[in-house]
Amino acid sequence: MSDEVAISVTVNGQVEHVRVEPRLLLVHLLRDELGLTGSHVGCDTSNCGACTVQLDGQSCKSCTVLAVQADGSEVKTIEGMGTEDDLHPLQEGFWAKHGLQCGYCTPGMIMAAADLLERTPNPTEEEIRHGLEGNLCRCTGYHNIVKAVQHAATAMQSAEVSA
């Protein structure tokens, strides 16, 4: 076996010191070593986006990033987005607008949508569809996902105005 590498990754605000095999993928570090099973493995070929997390504030597909590449970085997963009592506006939006059926794609959708709203706080429908083109959903036909993101964008804009 190749030598393990010591890395430090800040995951949802908590610093994690772990020793990993160089070939360990970030998604497996999160799921198997750290127990954060919200990030899903779908296609495992950087197509479907179910494994999307934020790495230093930008969305990425964690099935196509080595854990060692995240050394010294900050990772945010769906578990870091909100709590049951205090949902993130995107989580609220997916709930209110029925943006999911089976739910498998939802964590990745929300993490990709968070990047989209960071880049484009008030997106058009077309910008939402374009911004989420790296995420596949086999249930909803996307219409309610678009509505969920619009719902969140509106909530986040009005929160900013009142802040």
Binding site: T52, K61, T64, A112, D115
Partner: peptide
Amino acid sequence: IADQQIRNR
């Protein structure tokens, strides 16, 4: 290129 997640990396 591809999608935003890919372009970010």
